[in-house]
Amino acid sequence: MSGFRRLSPGAPVTMTVDGVPLDARIGDSVALALLVQGRFDFCAPAPGGSPRAPLCLMGVCFGCLARIDGRPGEQACMVPVRDGMVVETEGRADV
């Protein structure tokens, strides 16, 4: 699934997303880090089933909700990545 490529090397960090390591760069938001890897599925669908995915990357659309370091319902686009960060995709309820 195509994601993004980087224009230049950056300072790498590693997060854990649903138990699996995922590479990111210092300066990324959690949402961007996931998008870069071609991942959109970190937010539960809306009621009625339409997909939720990041639209704005700036805290307006609420399409990037995830549990980050144990805190549910975080807008992943507003959270800068940190080495060792634990991200869980929202799945079922709580949107």
């Binding site: 490529r5 300066g27 938001s29 961007l32 998008l35 997909p51 995915a53 990041p54 990357l57 686009c77």
Partner: peptide, 23 residues
């Protein structure tokens, strides 16, 4: 609402924040 549809502002944020360009 399909993943892959984004505001152009979001694409610019990817550039600014992560130096990231869509593939």
């Amino acid at each position: 609402t399909l993943p892959g549809v984004m505001n152009v502002g979001a694409m610019q944020i990817a550039l600014k924040q992560g130096g990231a360009v869509p593939v």
